[in-house]
Design a protein around this nucleic acid. Sequence first.
DNA 1: ATCCCGAGGG
DNA 2: CCCTCTGGAT
Length: 217
Amino acid sequence: MEQCKTSPMKNEAARIRRIFMLLKEHYPRARTGLRFENPYQLFVAVLLSAQTTDEQVNRITAPLFAAVPTVAAMAKMKAAELEPYLKSCGLYRNKSRYLVEASRMIMGEFGGALPDKFEDLTRLPGIGRKSANVILYAAFGKPALAVDTHVYRVSRRLGLSAAEDTAGVESDLKKALSPGEWGPAHHRLIAHGRALCRARRPDCARCFLKSCCPWKE
DNA sequence: ATCCCGAGGG
DNA sequence: CCCTCTGGAT
């Protein structure tokens, strides 16, 4: 109690460290649920994952990768030819168009190889800040912290950030963590958002972070 | 701020 | 019926 008055900032830092320590304990090896074997497959899976569950994405990508196995093959497709493969996921018209256009840009401007820099990735249609960060970390092993709907919601409930947009939350989380922790933290916040800190009906009663969480529904 | 947009849960 | 799912472009 006295520590709160004498050094509130230091106390807050300790609270945040405790949150990530507990997340690590409960989700020791949290990682992406998207199935992929190379950067091309991750690029496709991430682009498809917008407003769609990873399980649904995996159902789609299995036949899609068999039919369209490379960036070069994707670049030769027409959006209309691709749509049947994406029919069962949301936003399928946009996603079909983005996949073809982005693949053509990768062929034309990046020599057929998926770029490994944030500024290049976000130039690709359908790849924004979140998807670029996922690719940087999962495909290239670079320090990056993607803020998706789960990370955004959970971070704000936990008081890790009060930012009103994903870029602001990303900035706050990065400041609170060392670069080596960014990727794992991303996956653990998602795991927590799915398991307990759900968008609807969060299970605060069973939450192991209850004692260090300011949020009440 | 709005649009895209099927599947699954409640 | 309503809300949400590893968003991005206009």
